[in-house]
């Protein structure tokens, strides 16, 4: 059982990570590099001169970008393992998982790990003002945990009590509120910041849809090779 989860999760995750890395390098990285010109002070927003929105972002940085590919694959391998582990638990409870259902799992994963945390802490372009990183990390983790639990209760819970708890869990992190900076001091133009957040969330949605599909597909394939008893 353990090796089936490991195989499905790691292969689906690593393959998705590779695609996600390409999406990131193509669509997100140029915005990030552009913002870094403002973060480093090379460009100044509302400075003495009007700054062109079209900048030379320099040559392709192999070491930096290959590290990004590696870490994107690690992150999605982690997501893949967590996703397939939960698929295995749900299947033991009698809910078969296919690639089509995997798409829903991917959507739920996206809501849990990206969209819900982003509702309070939008993906940050380099150079934005933000609250203390430890406190943000804590809120981020708590939000992901609460959202994930809530979605599990909505999908597999029975009765109003479970759904009621789910609604509370979904809302609580946002009612409490994400840690915000005391003042705004980001040097990056808001246009770039917004573009970055949109791109990061969009690329994440694509990647999670692919992760869900692949995880469901690999899991089903592994299950057929070594059938496990289903709950009656």
């Amino acid at each position: 059982m353990f090796s089936r989860i490991l195989t499905s999760g790691l292969i689906a995750g690593a393959a998705t990570g590779l695609i996600a890395a390409l999406l990131q390098l193509w669509f997100v990285q140029p915005v990030l590099l552009h913002a870094e010109l403002y973060e480093s002070g090379q460009l100044a927003h509302f400075g003495a001169e009007v700054v062109s929105a079209h900048q030379d972002l320099g040559p392709f940085e192999w070491t930096r970008n290959m590290l990004s590919v590696l870490f994107t694959m690690l992150v999605y391998a982690g997501y893949g393992l967590m996703l397939v582990a939960l698929m295995a638990v749900s299947e033991a409870q009698g809910h078969a998982v296919t690639a089509r259902q995997g798409l829903l799992w991917g959507l739920a994963g996206y809501l849990t790990m990206q969209l819900a945390p982003a509702f309070g802490l939008a993906p940050e372009v380099p150079g934005v003002a933000a609250a203390d990183v430890q406190i943000r990390a804590l809120w981020w983790l708590g939000t992901a945990l609460a959202t994930g639990l809530a979605l599990w209760l909505i999908a597999f819970g029975k009765g109003w009590a479970a759904w009621g708890v789910a609604i509370v869990l979904l809302l609580a992190p946002h009612v409490i509120g994400a840690p915000q900076p005391d003042s705004y001091a980001g040097p990056v133009p808001p246009e770039l910041s917004a573009e970055f957040a949109g791109r990061a969330l969009g690329a994440g949605a694509m990647a999670w849809a692919i992760l869900g599909l692949l995880a469901g597909w690999f899991w089903q394939r592994e299950s057929q090779r070594a059938p496990v008893p289903q709950a009656a």
Binding site: N65, F71, V75, P123, A203
Partner: peptide, 8 residues
Amino acid sequence: DVRHATGF
């Protein structure tokens, strides 16, 4: 870069 792009 991955942390920024993934929303951490």
